[in-house]
């Protein structure tokens, strides 16, 4: 009996050794997990264990992001409303969906999306992966069904090959959402004049007006920093900033159903804000000057309005300086 066991052991060894000799895996650099290139001064974001970045995944995600195959009539891609040359926004108050329809809210930039604790203006979606389903299924955006997108992808040998390369699996809603999220997590912003001043310690990076704007931004006079804070200029909280007395869009309350959340929206990043007009969840303000005037006025009365939004004695020069500082948040 002991001998038999020994034989089994020896045979297994032989078989194992043979196998090893035959398929020594060629190291494919595009399949290797790589480290995200995070802007200096930024922490490393948390990345789901099942969706670490590789070149195959990022490339596939980018192709899908730019492919109108995601929409019912194959006219709209993610890039239609998140244009790379517009800092991944589209310049419209409300983005255009298929057949001339309009999304209900302003298209936010997806730069630095890796840090978002939840997605959408009302925070109703918990992960970058699941977020992918939102615009695909929204009747005013792509008006489609992720399962039908997958059927299209499966009929495309090029895509099937690339999904196998990226995830070792054929196209599915799981791999579709992973791939797009994988690409989106590589999109960072953090190379502005402000970063040069702040993280590279280059005191000449900002001029006098921008520096005064920065002081107002971070002190109790301008008071912007209560919500627009840290490396991404947001604390991701939900705030009512006094835009309206009656909100046609209930914002966060749509998710929580709480009256105390009516008119609250997720605080957006201010990076590249100069290039991402119009502003607010509904794109109702066309210029940064209008935005500063709004906050200086204290906004409309609303029971949920943030305490920080109240009238502020800013001079014309202060306002100009604040706008100049905001423009110093544009990537160089």
């Amino acid at each position: 009996m002991k001998k038999t066991l020994l034989y089994i052991f020896l045979i297994s060894l032989t078989v194992y050794a043979c196998k090893k000799d035959d398929d020594v895996p060629a190291i494919d650099p595009d399949a290797q997990v790589f480290t995200l290139q995070v802007p200096r001064g930024f922490p490393y974001p948390s990345v789901p264990a099942d969706n670490r970045p590789t070149n195959y995944r990022v490339r596939l995600g980018k192709q899908l992001f730019n492919d109108p195959i995601l929409s019912r009539d194959s006219t709209i891609s993610c890039a239609s409303c998140h244009k790379e040359n517009m800092k991944f926004t589209d310049g419209l108050p409300f983005s255009e969906g298929i057949a001339g329809r309009h999304a209900a809210r302003n298209s936010p930039s997806i730069l630095n999306i890796a840090y978002q604790p939840y997605l959408f203006w009302d925070g109703g979606n918990p992960t970058v992966e699941q977020q992918v389903l939102g615009p695909i299924g929204n009747p005013n955006e792509m008006d489609f069904d992720a399962n039908l997108v997958v059927e299209r992808l499966k009929r495309n040998p090029d895509y099937v090959f690339k999904f196998m390369q990226a995830y070792g699996k054929e196209p599915s809603v799981y791999t579709l959402t992973r791939a797009i999220a994988n690409y989106e997590r590589t999109l960072f912003t953090g190379t502005s004049k402000y970063d040069r001043y702040m993280y590279d310690h280059d005191s000449t990076a900002l001029n006098a007006s921008e520096k005064n704007g920065m002081t107002l931004f971070f002190n109790e006079i301008g008071d912007c920093f209560h919500c627009h804070v840290d490396y991404n200029f947001t604390d991701y909280s939900f705030q009512n900033n006094g835009l309206y007395v009656n909100y046609p869009d209930s914002g966060r309350a749509r998710i929580t159903l709480k009256a105390s959340d009516v008119g609250k929206f997720k605080v957006p990043t201010l990076r590249n804000v100069e290039l991402t007009a119009p502003y607010m969840h509904d794109g109702s303000m066309a210029t940064l000057e209008q935005v500063i005037d709004h906050y200086a006025s204290g906004g409309q009365a609303h029971p949920n309005k943030s305490n920080v939004v109240r009238p502020r004695p800013l001079t014309a020069q202060d306002k100009t300086d604040l706008v100049n500082f905001l423009k110093a948040l544009t990537d160089l």
Partner: peptide, 22 residues
Amino acid sequence: TTFGAGSPLAVQTPSIHWDWNS
């Protein structure tokens, strides 16, 4: 998207999931 196609919770189940509030 993480449930197998046979699961009642799978994304393949027609129109029984909201993505706006997940």
